[in-house]
């Protein structure tokens, strides 16, 4: 601030060169041309650094000028560079290397008023008191050299490691679902039967374990397992449901049979050898149902009456197709 102000004054002083010799005639014996050059040199040196080839006197002058410019106030209007002799004794005694030393000037100490400094300090101390006297760890200073990007990277690493750990554990827990027969799990369905995917999305782009993410029925089973591990009740899933309407269960069985039959047929058409079909359990379709001892062989006995349904009557009469 002080430098620019001082320089502005110099610039205004340069056009007023004409009356300089008149006023300076008594103090300065420099010729006009030299004077102009000295002014420019001073201006240059004030802006940049002292020119090496100049003689000692001009250096001294330059230094005193620099000091003057840095130290004078904004309203120091009557100061003329030629009249300056404030540090002369000091400057004349000093040696060349002392002249070339960089001047360090504190601006903050003079520019900020004491009151504002006190206020600033008060505010920071209040915030600091809150940080320091709280029960938390007083905030440690961030090291600019150890950049926080590196820190963030390592924490990211840690979190991704944890995530990978968790997904690996989950995969291990659910791995038995992947090895079940493809009919019950659509996870590893061949691509020739895309219609059987319960979810059209590609397993590779599902999140989590990527290609190993369970889809379809396996996904439901995995969910059930997850619920179980979180403390859910075992009959929450469809698979574990105990009681179900007969029609629904029949429908499921029928659908499963249908799917299996279609899979085998299509595999046969493609020439793919499949595992041997598990023979149907000896179902009681052919055998007659065991009825209670003393119960009638036909119909329903209730409240002292034997009730025969239409089907029973038909079976007795032998007309139509036989059911049992």
């Amino acid at each position: 601030m002080a430098i620019s102000l001082g320089k502005r004054k110099r610039h205004t002083a340069i056009p007023a060169r004409k009356d300089l010799p008149a006023s300076d005639a008594s103090t300065s014996d420099l010729s006009d041309g030299e004077d102009v050059r000295a002014i420019f040199q001073r201006a240059f040196e004030a802006r940049f650094k002292p020119l090496g080839s100049t003689k000692k006197k001009t250096k001294e002058e330059a230094r005193t000028e620099v000091v003057e410019e840095l130290l004078e106030d904004a309203d120091g209007d009557d100061e003329e560079y030629s009249e300056w002799d404030g540090f002369s004794s000091d400057a004349e005694d000093s040696e060349v290397e002392e002249v070339e030393r960089v001047e360090v000037v504190e601006h903050m100490s003079s520019s900020i008023p004491e009151l504002r400094k006190a206020e600033l300090r008060n505010r920071t101390s209040k915030a600091e008191a809150r940080a320091f006297m709280s029960s938390k760890i007083p905030s440690a200073p961030k090291d600019p050299l150890l950049s926080n990007s590196k820190d963030a990277d390592s924490t990211d690493d840690e979190s991704t490691n944890l995530q990978n750990d968790a997904s690996l554990q989950r995969l291990l827990r659910e791995s038995h679902l992947l090895s079940t027969t493809p009919s019950s799990s659509s996870t590893f369905y061949p691509s020739s039967t895309p219609s059987l995917h319960s979810r059209p999305s590609n397993p590779a782009n599902t999140n989590g374990a990527g290609a190993l993410a369970a889809i379809g029925a396996a996904r439901h089973a995995a969910h059930d397992l997850h619920f179980l591990s979180l403390g859910g009740k075992p009959h929450m899933g469809l698979k574990h449901q105990k009681s179900m309407p007969l029609a629904q269960r029949k429908g499921i069985a029928k659908k499963r049979e249908e799917m299996e039959e279609r899979r085998r047929r299509e595999a046969k058409e493609m020439g793919v050898v499949l595992e041997r079909a598990v023979g149907k359990k000896g179902s009681s379709t052919g055998a007659k149902r065991e009825r209670g001892v003393g119960a009638p062989g036909v119909g329903k006995f209730k409240g002292g009456t034997l009730t025969l349904s239409k089907r029973d009557v038909a079976s007795i009469q032998g007309s139509g197709k036989r059911r049992r």
């Binding site: 760890i137 007083p138 440690a140 924490t155 840690e158």
Partner: peptide
């Protein structure tokens, strides 16, 4: 609190202390 616990931040142990 002000001289021992800050040492733990150097080890990456800093949250919820």
């Amino acid at each position: 609190r002000t001289a021992i616990l800050p040492l733990y931040t150097q080890f990456g142990i800093q949250n919820n202390i």
